[in-house]
Amino acid sequence: MEDIQNSVLRSMADYMEHPGGITNGHLGRTRRYIELLLEMLESAGYYNEEISTWNREYFLRSSLLHDLGKFFIPDSILLKPGKLTEDEFEEMKTHTLSGLRMIEKMETSAADLFLQYAKIFIGTHHEWWDGSGYPYGLKGREIPLQGRLMAIVDVYDALISERPYKKAYSHKEAVRIIAEGRDTHFDPVLVDLFMSGQQRFESYAA
């Protein structure tokens, strides 16, 4: 049953990734970036106690599902060429909880580690270090490290990618925006690490 569930979820991720799909390559790129940031964390010796408990394969594979709930967001919002209204943005924010509900319906036991990791990515990658994020308003280290990692790479890829509502930012501009989010949007330790290895991110993005 677990193999069937994981196959279904991988198929969903593949669908979301194809050109013209929901994410148009975003999932694969964020997976590469989060693997790079994880390698940098391990080399620097930060958060080793937590990282050492992770199943690396499941961690990386499950990161592809962080935007799973966007299946439930209408194209009129996902592909809108202009700025979202307040109501539209509130509906967009529901993709986190919608994704969580989808995963929870597929869980068969507490031992399904892959789905546990997926739930963390889905439910916490829009939380902010200062507590102003969603869906739970978690703050600082209340936010799982998985979510704090995804927050940076998710924003970085969104900034340097063209979207229906904006042109792509340069790598330099994206780095500046992430640096400005230190202590507000992002874990300061992770921002400092990202800044120290920003050239590697630029080469991955090329």
Rank of each mutant, 00 (worst) to 15 (best):
E50T: 00
S62V: 04
T85A: 09
K119T: 06
T53Q: 15
K167M: 13
L9T: 05
L84V: 09
T124H: 15
G99L: 03
E2P: 01
P188N: 05
E127T: 08
E107H: 10
E104T: 01
F194N: 04
R141P: 07
R141H: 15
E17Q: 03
E39D: 14
E35M: 09
G21R: 03
I22K: 07
K172H: 11
S203L: 15
L149C: 10
S203P: 01
P81L: 03
G131H: 10
Y136G: 01
L115K: 13
S63D: 07
T23G: 02
G28W: 06
D183L: 01
G181A: 04
Y204P: 00
K80D: 11
Y15R: 05
V155M: 06
I77Q: 14
E90W: 08
Y169P: 04
H126Q: 08
F114E: 08
F59L: 06
R56C: 04
L65W: 14
E162K: 09
L159I: 03
T96V: 08
F114Y: 14
R176G: 01
N55P: 02
P164K: 09
R10C: 04
R10Q: 12
S11T: 12
I177P: 11
L149Q: 06
F186Y: 13
G137S: 10
Q198N: 10
S109C: 15
G137W: 10
D187T: 02
Y46S: 08
I160M: 10
G140N: 00
Y134N: 07
K70D: 01
Y33E: 02
P81K: 04
K139P: 09
R10V: 00
T108W: 15
F71H: 06
E90Y: 14
D187H: 05
L64Y: 14
L84E: 12
G99S: 04
I51M: 09
L36N: 13
L145M: 08
E88R: 00
K80T: 04
F114A: 05
L113K: 13
M106A: 11
R29T: 08
W54R: 05
I122L: 14
L115E: 12
S98P: 04
M16D: 14
P19Q: 08
M16R: 05
Y156K: 02
S43R: 15
P74G: 11
T108G: 15
R61H: 10
V153R: 02
W54C: 03
M195H: 04
L68A: 09
T108V: 00
S76I: 00
F72W: 00
I122Y: 13
T96H: 13
E49A: 12
L60F: 13
G181P: 02
E91I: 05
P81D: 08
D157G: 05
K105S: 15
E90F: 10
H18R: 14
N48Y: 07
K172Y: 08
K172R: 11
Y156R: 03
R10L: 04
G131P: 06
R176M: 02
E173W: 07
L97M: 13
I120Y: 05
R101G: 06
R31T: 01
A158K: 13
L145C: 11
S161Q: 10
L64M: 14
E17V: 03
I22M: 08
G140C: 01
K105T: 11
T53C: 10
S98Q: 07
I122E: 11
M195G: 08
D154K: 03
P164A: 12
E142C: 09
Y46I: 02
A110N: 11
R182P: 02
Y156P: 01
K139H: 11
R31K: 08
D112L: 00
G21W: 03
G140A: 00
G20T: 01
Q199A: 15
